[in-house]
Amino acid sequence: MLDDYLPDYDFSERHCRNVAARPDTIIEAASAYRAESDPFFRAMIGVREIPMRLAGWLGGRRAGLPPTFSLDNFTLLDRRDGSELVYGLVGQFWRSDFGLVSIADGTAFRAFDRPGIAKLVLGFSTEPGAGGLTKLTTETRIFCPDPVSRRKFAPYWYLIRPVSGLIRGRVLTSIRRASEKREAARR
């Protein structure tokens, strides 16, 4: 489904885990997952948001600052039970406040086309794996619509990518644990 929403992209990252659970159980666990429950994620987002929060505090705008970034900022674009889940995000992610643009749904995400503003998809997918396991994959793709946004996003991407990889590994591990726990409870 990622190709349905963002077939062309400039940056991407993919991570996989084998899970001893059925695909529908895994996708359900992925949709229920909340990264903000992970202390490492909260700490890294806290570090990422220091410039925005400090500027707000120094500028007397503390009350007008957005809530801490989380998966709630993403829009569910599509879901195929038992196989895929796709979220979208639109913004200027390199800005201290993320420069987020609200989108209503998958149709609005596809139609969005504004210079200087990037589009991101975050997907979870399942497929049969070795030894009766299910392979869970998460992939992120980012499209920058013009050279200026690519130049602004690239340094940000290369700075956050190592931490992003660690977070994604933790996300997959958490989803694997939740999925396997649900499977064990069904037996």
Rank of each mutant, 00 (worst) to 15 (best):
F98A: 04
A130K: 09
P145F: 04
I142L: 09
K135T: 10
T126V: 07
N73I: 01
G132R: 05
S96F: 13
D38F: 03
G64T: 05
R80A: 08
S179Y: 01
I45H: 08
G64H: 07
A184I: 12
S125G: 14
W57D: 00
G91N: 09
R141S: 08
D97Q: 08
D10V: 06
P23G: 06
W157E: 00
L133N: 00
Y156H: 15
L58Y: 01
R170P: 06
D81T: 12
G56L: 05
T107P: 02
A104L: 15
R141Q: 11
N18H: 13
R168P: 06
D97W: 10
A111Y: 10
F93C: 04
R161E: 02
E180I: 13
T137Y: 08
E49D: 10
T107L: 05
R177Y: 04
I142R: 05
G123H: 03
G165M: 14
R34M: 12
G59P: 02
D24H: 14
Y9L: 13
S37D: 10
R170G: 06
I50G: 12
E36I: 15
S70P: 12
T126E: 00
H15E: 03
D8Q: 15
F93A: 03
R14F: 03
E127L: 14
A130N: 03
L58V: 08
S179T: 00
A35M: 15
R141T: 08
I167V: 14
G56R: 06
V101I: 10
D10Y: 07
D78V: 12
F93Q: 01
